[in-house]
Amino acid sequence: MKRIIAGVALSFLLVTAAKAGVVVGGTRVIYEEGKREASISVTNADTHTPYLVQSWAENFNENDKRPVPFIVTPPLFRLDPEKRNMLRISFTGMELPHDRESVFWLNVKTISPSQKGDVNKLQVNIKSKFKIFYRPSDLAGAPEKAWQQLQFHTTGNQLVVNNPTPYYVSLFSVSVAGKEVDEPGMVAPMSSLTWPISGSGTVKWRAINDFGGITDVAQQ
């Protein structure tokens, strides 16, 4: 029953997002140290409806109350039908680790207009989150190969993955002996992640690359 409810909720979300007509040109932002800014496009694919677009950056951990070292411009703007604008992300300066990536959130909220006299109609607000990866210069290894260097082992009824690289690896899928791990998530640089499993066997995994694409399958 829970799966059915979750499926219905997801379907509603996807339909709502499709009707909104605002498309963000990417799934993540890579901010390389020393660059003046990073950017990502926002397009209104709707042929009739303008939208307000609000954007801001925040810490990846909601309990982290430190100032966010990024500003997004423009923070609020009107996006007319079939028009595109660029969100520009600038680093304001903050002491971040030099030996590994850091991650933050980019929030993009779209607000549909309410027509005059439509007081009883729902105004659609959609908030999407995209990862911002701050990548220091001169990190060891190649970021596009980090996913291949993951190391898996089992401990009791847990599968453990170790990431020895200085890069975040976002996992698209992980399976053990053909059984998929639910919501594999992301493993931080020089850190490990664990999942409960009920068996053992060959581990296969795929990751999400810098461009939002899915990698080939690796196995161990």
Results as ranks from 00 to 15, higher is better:
residue 101 E to V: 06
residue 6 A to L: 13
residue 213 G to Y: 07
residue 18 A to I: 03
residue 83 K to I: 09
residue 75 P to T: 14
residue 195 W to P: 10
residue 37 E to M: 05
residue 67 P to Y: 07
residue 219 Q to L: 15
residue 74 P to M: 03
residue 78 R to E: 05
residue 25 G to Y: 00
residue 12 F to T: 08
residue 162 N to R: 07
residue 43 T to N: 04
residue 156 G to M: 04
residue 123 Q to K: 14
residue 158 Q to I: 06
residue 136 P to H: 01
residue 21 G to M: 01
residue 83 K to D: 09
residue 59 N to W: 14
residue 50 P to G: 03
residue 126 I to K: 08
residue 42 V to F: 01
residue 10 L to Q: 09
residue 198 S to E: 12
residue 33 E to G: 02
residue 90 S to L: 14
residue 33 E to H: 00
residue 118 D to Q: 12
residue 99 D to K: 08
residue 43 T to Q: 05
residue 9 A to P: 05
residue 175 S to F: 06
residue 179 K to C: 07
residue 191 S to M: 02
residue 6 A to T: 09
residue 57 A to R: 05
residue 1 M to V: 10
residue 202 T to N: 02
residue 110 T to Q: 05
residue 20 A to D: 09
residue 49 T to W: 00
residue 91 F to R: 11
residue 178 G to H: 04
residue 145 K to V: 11
residue 147 W to M: 02
residue 23 V to L: 09
residue 104 F to H: 13
residue 198 S to Q: 11
residue 4 I to N: 10
residue 197 I to M: 05
residue 111 I to T: 13
residue 215 T to S: 02
residue 40 I to K: 04
residue 151 Q to D: 07
residue 124 V to N: 09
residue 83 K to R: 14
residue 56 W to R: 06
residue 204 K to G: 05
residue 2 K to Y: 11
residue 6 A to C: 15
residue 195 W to L: 04
residue 216 D to M: 03
residue 45 A to T: 11
residue 98 H to W: 09
residue 5 I to G: 12
residue 73 T to H: 06
residue 131 K to A: 11
residue 219 Q to Y: 08
residue 43 T to D: 02
residue 84 R to V: 15
residue 88 R to N: 11
residue 155 T to C: 08
residue 56 W to Y: 14
residue 81 P to T: 11
residue 175 S to R: 12
residue 125 N to C: 12
residue 154 T to D: 11
residue 199 G to N: 04
residue 214 I to L: 04
residue 110 T to N: 03
residue 32 E to R: 07
residue 86 M to I: 10
